[in-house]
């Protein structure tokens, strides 16, 4: 389990005034390179940023994770939840770089996305900072192990400390 999250989001740091709305939970500098498609990435030996579409097989990236610094996962529609699995698989396979949700990202989805390992968001529509804070602080606990460091209720009940694993 990697915990590479900072607790407070930063705004559109490091981007010009024309930058799109941007929410980031990492302390390192954002990757400047444009993300390329999975096919282009697999074909180019030197790309460091890749963009996953819902139909792509995330696992094709696994042999190359050591050279990736940014993975963008596109959510073309609100209801297409494949990106949640893509993110979690990358974290389960040890990916520690930036994992950015782009596209149809609404405030009501942020908490689930954080749990699946996303640590940056580039929503199509800007998010209100107060709404973001409320949404991320809404639920006091979680019921299952995912790609974040939250300790599930069933472990809390049996005396596990924060950061401990189930099993």
């Amino acid at each position: 389990m990697v915990d590479h999250t900072s607790t407070t989001p930063s705004g559109a740091e490091g981007r010009g005034p024309e930058a799109r709305p941007f929410l980031r939970f990492r302390d390192d500098d954002p990757v400047g390179d444009p993300a390329v498609t999975v096919n282009a990435f697999l074909g180019q030996g030197n790309a460091t940023a890749v963009r996953i579409e819902p139909g792509d097989d995330t696992r094709e990236l696994l042999p190359h994770l050591d050279r990736v610094a940014l993975v963008e996962v596109n959510f073309p529609t609100l209801g297409d939840g494949r990106g949640y699995s893509a993110a979690r698989i990358l974290r389960e396979e040890g990916y520690t770089g930036e994992l950015r949700a782009v596209g149809n990202v609404l405030v009501d989805q942020l908490a689930f996305m954080r749990r699946c390992g996303f640590d940056a968001f580039e929503p199509g529509e800007p998010l209100d900072a107060a709404d973001v804070e409320a949404a991320l602080g809404r639920f006091p606990h979680v019921y299952q192990q995912a790609a974040d460091s939250a300790v599930p209720i069933w472990s809390l009940r049996h005396g596990k400390e924060a950061g401990a694993r189930n099993g």
């Binding site: 209801g79 939840g81 949640y84 689930f112 749990r115 699946c116 019921y143 299952q144 995912a146």
Partner: peptide
């Protein structure tokens, strides 16, 4: 387990 499941809500 299925309540508020982060991966399986969409």
């Amino acid at each position: 387990w299925s309540s508020f499941h982060p991966e399986f809500s969409y």
